[in-house]
């Protein structure tokens, strides 16, 4: 009995140590993440003299050396990051074509909003609609679509950038925002399966009752199915909005003249390598890029962090 008690005590102690170690690790990790972001915010209010001459890398901004920066001068200087011209020469159907775009704050903001809002709507609504149709109408083609998408998720295709770029150039839509909207006008990817699992779990009584009342198929989808899935649509829309807001690699490759905010910050970073911009200016740019998303995260964290499950797929 005593031995059993001792064993239980030892087990309890081992469990406690395990969780204390994890707790410590998590605390350190959170400090590293928040500390990094806070350092960036602080540095955005420091001058070159403060950081690089006085070596004030960790402290608060010096009120004398960084007097102007404390009045957001680093943020104002970000406006100088705009006002450049992007030149994109490429061969289209064998002939050299050059696209030019003068990048201003207005152009950047419009591009950013179009890029993030429209494509994230496509990424959320189209898989939802396709999944609803496949569940609601179990035709053979629905099964074919489901199986095809499942197979495609597992079979990787490497290196289609050149073919895709050439196709866009042949169609005459390379380096345009419309091309990106067309590229995203599909229902492939894991969100289709998330919506599929959701609609599979819904009772069909709603639709049947509506049909009996004389509702058309379009009405049933728009007034019953989509509103029921609205929370999930919003979650996925938010996730994709965040993804597109932060995207710059796609722009560099597919649409170099359709500059967004993330791209401008990336370009500002490139310029820093030649010493054109100070640490304060770059961290100000980081803050501007991160701030809207932090607000979105604070306001919508329950939706963003809701569990998205793939259901019990065995495919």
């Amino acid at each position: 009995m005593a031995h059993k008690k001792q064993k239980m005590k030892a087990k309890g102690l081992a469990d406690k140590i395990f969780f204390i170690v994890l707790f410590t690790f998590l605390v350190l990790y959170v400090i590293s993440i928040l500390g990094t972001l806070f350092w960036g915010l602080l540095s955005s209010f420091k001058s070159v003299a403060d950081i690089e001459i006085k070596k004030n890398v960790l402290g608060l901004p010096n009120p004398v050396l960084s007097a102007e920066e404390l009045r957001f001068s680093n943020y104002a200087k970000l406006l100088d990051a705009f006002g450049f011209t992007v030149v994109n020469p490429f061969y289209q159907n064998g002939v050299m074509v050059t696209h030019y775009q003068e990048v201003t704050l207005g152009v950047t903001l419009v591009n950013t909003l179009m890029f993030t809002v429209i494509t994230s709507i496509e990424n959320a609504v189209l898989p939802c609609m396709a999944a609803y149709l496949c569940v609601r109408y179990p035709f053979k083609v629905s099964g074919f679509i489901y199986s095809t998408l499942l197979v495609l998720m597992v079979i990787p295709i490497v290196g289609t950038y050149p073919a895709e770029i050439e196709m866009l150039r042949s169609l005459g839509i390379y380096d345009t925002m419309i091309a990106y909207f067309i590229q995203n006008f599909n229902f492939t990817g894991m969100y289709f399966f998330i919506f599929y699992a959701y609609f599979e779990g819904l009772s069909t009584t709603y639709y049947e009752a509506a049909e009996i009342d004389g509702a058309s198929q379009l009405m049933i989808m728009l007034k019953i199915a989509l509103p029921l899935a609205f929370k999930l649509i919003m979650t996925i829309w938010l996730l994709r909005f965040i993804g597109h807001w932060n995207e710059y690699g796609t722009i560099l490759l597919y649409m170099p003249t359709q500059v967004t905010l993330a791209f401008v910050i990336y370009r500002t970073f490139i310029s820093t390598m030649n010493g054109e911009h100070s640490v304060g200016e770059v961290t100000a740019g980081c803050t501007v890029l991160a701030f809207p998303l932090v607000i979105i995260f604070i306001c919508f964290r329950e939706q963003l962090m809701g569990n998205l499950t793939l259901g019990g797929e065995k495919g």
Binding site: L34, N246, Y266, L293
Partner: peptide, 16 residues
């Protein structure tokens, strides 16, 4: 807090 790196751009964290 663990979800925060998903929200904020990797570019921001890279620069910082």
């Amino acid at each position: 807090m663990l979800y925060l790196p998903h929200v904020i751009s990797g570019l921001v964290f890279s620069l910082l």
